[in-house]
Structures are given as C-alpha cells and as structure tokens.
Design a protein around this nucleic acid. Structure first.
Lengths: 186, 186
DNA sequence: CATAAGATACCGTCTGGACGGTTTGTCAAG
DNA sequence: CTTGACAAACCGTCCAGACGGTATCTTATG
C-alpha cells in the first residue's frame, strides 16, 4: 500500500539510488553504517526491495565495485585517447583520474569503496585483479619504476585526502601533479 | 577451573597477546573478524578476561593504536638521530620506517590499524592528530613539496603491500627508496 | 485492441544468530 | 583477607536474510 508500491516502477533508477545511498552512508557513518536497513530506508525502499535488486549484501558491494571501476575504466580510456605519447600513457591517465576524483561527485563512492576494499577480503581480491589486468595490458609502456612510483604517490595523496590527514592546497597539488607527469615520461 | 585461571598470572603478557591476536585476526578475516569473542578465544582468554584488560572494544583498538604509534615514534626518533642532514630528516626517517615495516613483525599490526583507521571515524581523528603533530614539529625541515611527495609515495607503496595489489621486487623497492631519499634532500 | 497470463518490482514481517557489554562467581597472589 | 585476574552465563540490540504477499509492467493471444 505504500508509495513505492504505487509509484511508477523504475528499477534502474532505484538500483542506482541504492548504490548512491550506500556510498553516502559509509562516508557519514563509517563502514558500519552500511546496513541493509539503513541503505534501503535512506533510498526510500524497503529492505525486501533492496534484496530484490541485490540478493545479498556482498552483491551490493560488488555492484558498487562494478559501477565505480566501470567509470574509472571509461575515464582512463578517455584520457588515454587524448595522450599522444605512448610511454607512461596509462600512468598519466591514472594520475589524471585520481587527481580529478578529489573534486568529483564520485569521490564519495570511491572513498566508501576503499574502506570496503580494505575491510572485505573478497573485494581486496577483485581490486588485485583489476590492478593485475591493467598492469598486464600496459606492461610495454607503464611498467617502469618511475611510472610505478608516480602511481604510488598518487595513491598516497588519495589516501591522505581520504583520511583528511594532510591539507594540500591547490597550487601544491598542481605542482605535485606536474612532477608526477614528468616522472611518467622519464 | 580452566587453564588460565590456574596458570601463573601474567597480565602484561596477556594484554600483549590480545593486541597481537587482534592484529592477526583482522588480517586473516578482515576488520569484521575482529570481534571480542574471536579475539579473546584466539588469545586463549575468555571474553570477560579481555574486557578486564580493555573495558570496551574501542579501548582495544585504542590500545593497538597507542602500541603501534609508540613504536613508530621510537623508530623514527632512532632514525633521525643517525641522520646528520637536517633538511628532510623526518621524511627520510619516515621512509625508512615504512620500508622497514614491510618485513617487520609489526607489519600485520600496521595493516589492521590501517583498516581500523579507515573504518573507525574516531581512529581516523587520532591519526589526523598524529600527522598534524609531526607536521608541526618538523615544519622547518620537512614541509617542502618534495618531502610531502616522498612521504605520499611511501604511503602508496605501503597501501599496495597491504592490498597485495602490486608485486614490487626487492631491487625495484631499493631503487624506489633511493629515489625518494633523493627527493627528500632536494 | 482487449485481456489473460505470467514476469517483475516491490512491501512488511519474522527469525536466527552474532556481537558488545554486564554481572556474578572463582581462584590465586600478596 | 583483600584485591587483581580471570571465567561463565547471560542480556539487549542489531543485523542479514528468508518468506509470503501485493501491485505494476509486459507480452502474447484471440
């Protein structure tokens, strides 16, 4: 009898909403705040409704993972298309994405994902796979020590942002980025 | 009637054991695996026994935090004492510790701490404090962009080790370290 | 086009188990 | 004999997931 029961059905939108809410909740309340009850309620859907879209909690986290790595892959592909230099091309695209992500609307999603990644061994394994796939794919152009270092530094900055442990002002950020791009070309 | 009741009392040892086990458990089973039941059982102590040493779960995590940051502080101080160059001295000490930590017995502890840090807003705050304190203390010598970058890169490598997402062989590791030390001197 | 017959998208309740924490009791050391 | 170091049973809460139902959508058929 409730609203959602009678409103126009929009499964894809509800699904998206659930993922979005899951990301937001973990930001605000920590990973422990991501409960089926909380997510479904905040998304304006019953728990049964949530479990219809995602048969269990892991599936929800997997959905988040797919969603975000999908976007990341597309962003990276886009960046790589605009880069004429082969050597370090993937690394530079990765850098661009990580630096862009700080102000992006998806930043929240990435943050929850990081937390979930570290917490859930299963998602850790999926991330490992993602990294291995890309390392394989770009072994010819991006396997140098310098490129690896540049990517690690980007990860470190990203981690600092996540923990809000350092405050890096925009000019310093830009300088850092230039430095890392130079590294990727070396 | 049980063993622990009759064995020679050794509270400090039990306390240490509990911290150690908590670290190990989260490594093997993820942060969710760190339950009072699991920790106490694996440490050969009852839950009541655990709660005697740590009045609640947060106190256990706090204990872990104190234990590890204490060790880190001592390691850093030790490294800094042996470094004649003032500029970037803290950064180099930090680098040494992070690189040393990979093979260290405490590595596990640090890994659980990272996970807990990301999961628990309260511990995030404590880490923020630690970073702020050290940034203040060494603002004269280690606040350059190059030093910050070097530390970020070390964090990134550490994260990669935690996630086991990249495999960096020892020579590459060494090269990376040299590079970062050079950065800290620049 | 109408409509029956599924298929899909939900709702709301219930349950079993886990988990953090309390309380009470017991033993041993000083 | 007091106190610290545990044990063991217990409690309230929360949570993942199951289940049975209802409403809307789609499709095929007459």
């Amino acid at each position: 009898m409730s609203i959602a029961h009678h409103r126009r059905k929009q499964p894809e939108l509800v699904r998206q909403q659930l993922l979005e809410v899951a990301a937001r909740l973990s930001l605000e309340q920590g990973a422990a705040g991501v409960t089926l009850d909380a997510v479904s309620h905040a998304a304006g859907v019953s728990k049964g409704g949530l479990l219809h879209h995602f048969p269990n909690k892991m599936a929800l986290l997997d959905g988040l993972f797919d969603d975000l790595t999908g976007k990341l892959d597309r962003m990276i592909a886009e960046e790589m298309r605009n880069d004429p230099v082969a050597h370090g091309r993937f690394t530079r695209a990765y850098l661009s994405c990580v630096f862009a992500l700080q102000e992006d609307a998806d930043a929240q999603g990435w943050q929850v994902l990081t937390i979930a990644l570290l917490s859930e061994p299963q998602l850790r394994a999926r991330w490992r796979l993602w990294v291995a796939d890309h390392a394989d794919a770009f072994v010819g152009t991006d396997s140098s020590a310098a490129c690896l270092l540049a990517r690690f530094a980007a990860d470190g900055l990203w981690l600092a942002d996540l923990l809000k442990s350092h405050d890096v002002d925009p000019p310093a950020r830009q300088a850092m980025r230039s430095h890392l791009i130079a590294l990727s070309l070396q």
